[in-house]
Amino acid sequence: MSMIEETTGRAEAADDEVERFPGDPDMWLFVVVESLVFTSYFCIYLYSRTQHERAFLEAQSALTMSLGIVDTIVLLTSSWTIACCVQHTNARRYETARWFALATVGLGAVFFVLKVAEWAHLIRDGHTFTSSDFMQHFFFLTSIHAIHLIIGFVVLGVLVRQLSGPHLRAHRTIETCSTYWHTVDLFWVVIFALLYIVR
């Protein structure tokens, strides 16, 4: 698709009329495949949990649920800001879209800082990767999620760059980047429920 076709985008339309593919289908394939890989990690955790209930409950009590709630709300809000960014991009309000994109980066950074602080706190209290099976799962799932988050910063960097120059602004690329960012939220939503709430 030529740059001209990509950048003109679609005109604003009534909400329920237009059927369009959000972003690159290839990125959606990534979303599906990575979700299945994560689901296998989750199932292994859940199975281990059910076989060693007492030990898992005991180790789980070291977690602070309210921190998990804050983490979740931060990432949900980041999904909202990036969705707003895409909406404004499609309406060709690029400056507003850019602010929403930067807000997303900020929220991602807040999540990351909270996560690192939580890890530091747990490690100081003697809970590490090898201190218990639950903690092995906890640190593994939160670490692999954090790696996705860090990659997300790179992806958001591409997105912000697209919005920053008038000669760029490929709508498809911007939507594809936002699709990737949403996976950071999608995976966290399940990770939070499994690690902090499931008993």
Partner: peptide
């Protein structure tokens, strides 16, 4: 295809 690029990411992770 581009989806193979993303599959490399899945594998790398």
């Amino acid at each position: 295809p581009k989806w193979f690029g993303y599959l490399n990411l899945v594998n790398a992770l």
